[in-house]
């Protein structure tokens, strides 16, 4: 049996991202050195939305890049056939900049660990920060987010699904799916 519970509506997502946009601005004392980097796949549209929110209230367009961390994963053998590797496009040199990594869900921290390695290979930013829409706990590594849309206590048997229009999911929402045996 599958139990499905909505934890964020489209409007909740919108407000969370606007708040994160303001927090990024305030934390860094301005946006001149900030680059938003979405972690593929769903981090990319989220980074775009944060950039759009920043453009709304600051009138500046912060650069948005996309990062594919497939080649940096530590579980190649564990996940069956090698997954498709998609393109990484970060744009201008990130050395000396503030890179804000953006992802949909923070869980074990292994994706972020891989992303940190990937960024380090692309340059030497002055700071790297992390923004996530949902932090569901259960970290396996000493990693935390700087900007969180919503903290959601979960059990490991549950699945958190982030649905976004741009990803072809049909609607904007975050749901927890519980599959009981």
């Amino acid at each position: 049996m599958t139990d499905r519970k909505q934890i964020l509506t489209a409007d909740d997502i919108r407000r969370a991202l606007v708040r994160i946009a303001h927090e990024i601005d305030e934390r860094n004392g301005g946006l001149q050195d900030v680059i938003l980097v979405g972690i593929r796949r769903r981090g990319v549209p989220l980074a775009e939305r944060i950039a759009a929110a920043i453009a709304d209230f600051e009138g500046v367009r912060v650069p948005v890049g996309q990062l594919d961390i497939t080649l940096y994963r530590d579980d190649l053998k564990l996940r069956g056939p090698a997954p498709l590797v998609r393109k990484t496009e970060i744009g201008p040199d990130i050395t000396g900049k503030v890179v804000v990594l953006v992802d949909d869900v923070l869980y074990t921290g292994r994706t972020v660990r891989a992303a940190l390695d990937a960024v380090a290979d692309l340059g030497r930013p002055e700071r790297i920060q992390l923004a996530v829409l949902v932090d569901r706990g259960h970290r396996e590594l000493p990693i935390r987010a700087d900007f969180v849309g919503k903290n959601v206590p979960t059990s490991r048997t549950e699945r958190v699904e982030v649905h976004l229009q741009e990803a072809g999911d049909g609607a904007d929402e975050v749901v927890i799916v519980r599959t009981s045996p």
Binding site: L71, L84, V85, K87, T88
Partner: peptide
């Protein structure tokens, strides 16, 4: 071929 494109970027 798609994967190779990403490798070319690397």
């Amino acid at each position: 071929l798609e994967t190779a494109e990403s490798m070319k970027e690397v």
